[in-house]
Amino acid sequence: MKAGGYLRAASLADAASARARGGIVIAGGTDIMVKGRSRNIYADKVLVDVSGIGELHLVGERGGAIEIGAACTLSGLCADRALRERLPLLVDAMEHVGGVQTRNRATIGGNVVNACPASDIIPALMVLDASVRTTARTIPLADFFVDCPHCLKHEGMYVRSCLFPDAASKKTVLEPGELVRSLIVPLPRAGSRHLFYKLARTQNIGLACVNLALIGTLLGGVVEGLSISMGGLFPRPCTLDGCSAVLRGTSADVSTLDRVKAALAEKLAAESGALVDYGYKSRVAPALLADGIAAFMAGETLERKRRI
């Protein structure tokens, strides 16, 4: 791949100033190295490698939240037993990203900053009410992204043909020279249950067509708290608050689920002009949401056991 330079940043300050000078942050490289492969988009850019900065690898629990360094690899995080216990939804989502080879290099910070609408991790972080801690501030994840309707028009959303060589500057609110240090993820309420599902055409290691992340609590068989996010559908990551509101206080019976589906369909209709697979996604997303909620209520997963 053609690149204008490669800097192994020794510290966050070094990385931030290199970034301010127009450098492109690289951690695992599983997005950058693919985006840059056959187009000369990084030919005059310096790649700023942050994977060697120690503080970006820290994972710690403080004040009811877990702070995860941006350069932590997905496989490293998935192997962290304590993390799996405390944030099972996040680990579930991360395990669905790519194949083993991808997860051994891809980082949680890289995935968030790349801001692909089909990211598996972002919906999980959204319903977990995560925040992004940068070198300048701490922002709720929900406020971290900017609308990107172009991505929805992008057939297949392939990394290889991504429209944004510098996703950080175009798809997030990061200022020039501002870097992500960590994700801060509050611990879910006691007794929370979750569900994650990645819909794709085969068991291939690529991006989701549509995905679903849910977390919530039940009280006496009735939805007490619930947060829902779906990827592959919207110009900006969001939680489906309208749908959650319909479900709160209900046992998610069939007629309630119909109302939830209708709420999602209405929200999706706004994307009918931009979303390239709208015909299929508008049919499958509400059905997936309803099936996911039903499984969630029953304490089950949507994963189908194969080879029976």
Binding site: G156, Y158, Q203, N204, I205, R306
Partner: peptide, 12 residues
């Protein structure tokens, strides 16, 4: 490329 043209994986 093989991200768009899908062939079976071991899990399929």
């Amino acid at each position: 490329n093989l991200d768009a043209y899908l062939i079976a994986t071991a899990k399929d």
